[in-house]
Design a protein around this nucleic acid. Structure first.
Length: 283
DNA sequence: CACCATGTTCCTTG
DNA sequence: CCAAGGAACATGGT
């Protein structure tokens, strides 16, 4: 689920169903998921608070809470496998439900198979984040300044959250394909025009993903495959094509033909992460 | 069994 | 001291 577009879409879905709700019960089923706080600390901080806003910063979810005497922000991160959704009280929880917050008729579930994600009153990580991709500060000039003299590969730099916040491993490859730039180029060696293309491609690819995600309704009644279990998921009518993977042009397409020139897509490893690109289209 | 996976952080190496 | 690379975290899918 989780790069900037997925988090943004989730925020838009959660905001209308969470705002004005009050947290009446707190159940931490996985203490690690509220680190660095203790379960008791987390529970005390969340209990009785009313949700006044749901926002996003990079890949973090920000939940504005207001109590009778103060306000605070609950911060969520989905890690690699996190999800959040509401389900009716009393229904069986998923195996990896990490935190369950009781609201009115429903409970708010943070589920996280690999437990890399977090839900905590801890904003330390936000301080080091670079600009959001859609703000004016994120410009070709900004990139030129920030990457001056940098010999690291551009793909690796795009994953650096202090350079630009929210790009992950999938959209880094996708953006560079659209920009026509090899992921292995030294970041500081890119020409101004190329940095402009990198910036535009990042924005385009993220915006397109948000636009697509926003058109997909959440399914409260049952799963896209028809197995109704009371949870909600990003819906896809049974038998419909999986647009999510189809609109990715290079990611996870090693060996398959480039959509533009037909050359086999290459997979390489950079900084311990897979990178996908077309050696013909990307120089 | 081996390897891979949408992310972040810590430790080691140079 | 800093930059860069690699492993760890934990579970599941292929």
């Amino acid at each position: 689920m989780p790069e900037l577009p997925e988090v943004e879409v989730l925020v838009r879905h959660l905001a209308p169903v969470l705002v004005a709700q009050t947290i009446r019960e707190v159940e931490v089923r996985r203490p690690k998921s509220v680190r660095p706080q203790s379960v008791a600390e987390f529970s005390r901080s969340a209990l009785g608070m009313t949700i006044t806003g749901v926002r996003r910063r990079a890949k973090y979810l920000l939940f504005d809470l207001r109590g009778s005497i103060d306000e605070r922000v609950l911060i969520g991160h989905l890690g690699m496998t996190g999800r959040m959704f509401l389900q009716p009280r009393g229904q069986p929880l998923p195996r990896h439900a990490a935190v369950v917050l009781g609201l009115g008729a429903e409970v708010w579930v943070f589920e996280d198979t690999r437990y890399f994600g977090r839900m905590a009153f801890d904003d330390a990580a936000l301080a080091g984040l670079g600009p959001e991709p859609f703000v004016d500060d994120f410009s070709a000039d900004y990139l030129r300044e920030a990457l001056r003299g940098c010999r690291q590969a551009i793909k690796v730099k795009l994953l650096d959250q202090s350079l630009v916040a929210g790009v992950g491993n999938i959209y880094a490859s996708e953006a560079l394909f659209r920009a026509g730039i090899s992921p292995r180029r030294a970041a500081g060696r890119l020409k101004p025009a190329e940095l402009g293309r990198v910036r535009d491609s990042i924005r385009d690819v993220l915006a397109e993903a948000i636009r697509f995600g926003s058109t997909v309704p959440l399914d409260f009644a049952g799963r896209a495959d028809g197995a109704g279990d009371g949870l909600f998921y990003y819906g896809r009518p049974p038998g419909a094509p999986d647009y999510y993977t189809e609109r990715l042009l290079v990611y996870d397409r090693a060996g398959r033909p480039c959509v533009r020139c037909g050359t086999a897509i290459r997979k390489v490893v950079q900084a311990n992460r897979s990178t996908y690109f077309c050696t013909q289209c990307q120089r």
